[in-house]
Design a protein around this nucleic acid. Structure first.
Lengths: 214, 214
DNA sequence: TAGATTGTTAATCGATTAACAATC
DNA sequence: TAGATTGTTAATCGATTAACAATC
């Protein structure tokens, strides 16, 4: 039932809506007006109404929107009702941190493998997972359904790794390498550029600029 | 000389320009046209020209822009010519990962302290740094100039920590906690919401949607 | 000089906000 | 019924792209 062609700007706001709706539910609040939700989130009521309308979600005049309904719908849109299998490529400290971050598993992103080329790391345990050698990834992928590969390798290795794993059928990459990955059209990439974010923070400090985002 | 009031959209593109300019320099390329740079970055020449014009940077007709000049200027805008002192609050695996990430120090963000409330962690070493107890942060801040606090504590601790450290004079926070931090106007916050990014990736997979961003 | 490419203005596109009639 | 709040259209705002005269 959810409208196609919802803009990416709106999609990127969904996790934030979801967070607020979760806390409203926890507070036992069962309905909320666009005005009140907007106030809490520090956005405009118009935006709330437009965003929900984009998915065809309706409220009730004089009353507002149903919190549980929105919570469930956004959860569904974001795939929180589905378990995704994820592997981590690059078992450096960032890879370790991702593997240990319990939050991902809670949201349905299950980490089922972690790989590295450094033989001194292979066999070490991270949580319950043994680090595997990258050479074994082909076999692993043959036996396991993997939805997402998180990429935490050095920039110098990224190109080769990406070419290799996409050839093996990986269709979604969560990229922590500070560079633009080149892939086929049908591979989905989501970037986390830590250093870019830190540099922007550096800029903001200097300019004492009021850059407002999320 | 740099224009004030450059929009945050443009600012957020600067780290990416910087990366491309660095690689052009490394290739020994000394000048580049907006058309050629745009092609490499997969954006439009108009955008390149508009972006640079916003800072008052000029090229030469029939020739293009000076790579070294742009590289230096963007570096200066982003504060890469300045050393920033950063502390990490929360010595969990994410805090560890940040402390170990050599890239930050290379870009001038020097990590000078890491704090946690868990006494079993205090005294442990991360790189060259001993984890300090959060109770000692006031004294630490009294003796050290700290430009940025990276926040990698559990969500439940975030509010209290932020109130406390901003009271002690912290003016910039690199926030890894998946919630909106409330602070005074003069505190700069830059968010990394890992889970939001992962959820958007989850959405993209399901929709096979072509959400294009950076 | 001829060709390339800037610098800048105008056109387009998309996202956000405002406004208000419809209606619970 | 009266009041509140939606759903939607129109207005505004900002960002991106196109176009082209100026000029190196």
């Amino acid at each position: 039932m959810n409208q196609k062609n919802v803009s990416s700007t709106v999609i990127r706001r969904l996790p934030r809506y979801y967070r607020y709706l979760t806390s409203l539910k926890d507070l036992g609040i069962s309905s909320i007006s666009s005005k009140e939700l907007a106030k809490r989130m520090n956005i405009t009521a118009s935006q709330v109404k437009q965003d929900f309308a984009a998915f065809g979600w309706h409220g009730l005049q004089g009353y507002g929107y149903d919190v549980s309904f929105l919570h469930t719908e956004i959860g569904r849109i974001l795939g929180l009702d589905t378990v995704r299998n994820m592997i981590i490529i690059g078992a450096g400290s960032l890879g370790h941190a991702l593997a240990r971050h319990a939050e991902f598993e809670k949201k349905g992103f299950k980490i089922i493998g972690i790989f590295d080329t450094r033989s001194e790391l292979v066999g070490q345990k991270v949580n319950d997972l043994e680090i595997m050698h990258f050479d074994n990834i082909e076999e692993f992928l043959a036996h396991n359904k993997v939805d997402i590969a998180a990429l935490t390798v050095p920039a110098s290795h990224a190109k080769g790794v990406v070419e290799y794993i996409t050839k093996l059928g990986i269709k979604a990459i969560w990229n922590f390498v500070p560079m633009k990955l080149q892939t086929d059209e049908d591979v989905t990439i989501e970037n986390i550029h830590l250093i870019d974010s830190l540099l922007v923070l550096g800029y903001k400090i200097k300019e004492n600029a009021n850059i407002k985002d999320d």
